[in-house]
Amino acid sequence: MKHVRRALVVFINILIILIVVIFGIKGLGEEVYPAIADKLFGVEGIYGTSGEQKEIIKKPVHAEGREYCSKCHEEIYRKSDQGKHNFDCQTCHGAASDHPKMRLKVDSSREFCLGCHKATIGRDNETIRVLHNWENHGKDRVCTACHDPHHPWFD
């Protein structure tokens, strides 16, 4: 009987240690415990389930809306607003994250415009003006030679 009792004591002790370890680490807070193991292995990060939700919110925004662009480029903003090219600036210009510091580049090649305007299977004519004879229309010239990209129709 004695040995059973002792074995039981050993088992319960192991169980208690396990539970104490679990709750001890849990008690340190969610910001700490995934980090313990990670720090041993040199992984860095921000920890905690509830914290992460807040951290994701803090992430920087790279692509601001067109209203943001209109603060400086109001003329272009108004011009494009009248036509069908009234979508967001960054669709063509790319994300504006560091824009005043970094110059934004825009691809003015034919291929770039044709990316949307080429006749492609699946592309709906009612949604977008597709170019069927794109190989010959304005051959060897960039589209912007004739069309203003911000308002590409001739009045």
């Binding site: 396990l18 679990i22 680490i25 849990k26 415990y33 193991a37 990670d38 041993l40 292995f41 992984v43």
Partner: peptide, 12 residues
């Protein structure tokens, strides 16, 4: 992917 975090199965 992160084996060092495996014990989290018991924590959370």
């Amino acid at each position: 992917g992160q084996p060092q975090r495996a014990f989290e199965i018991y924590l959370t």
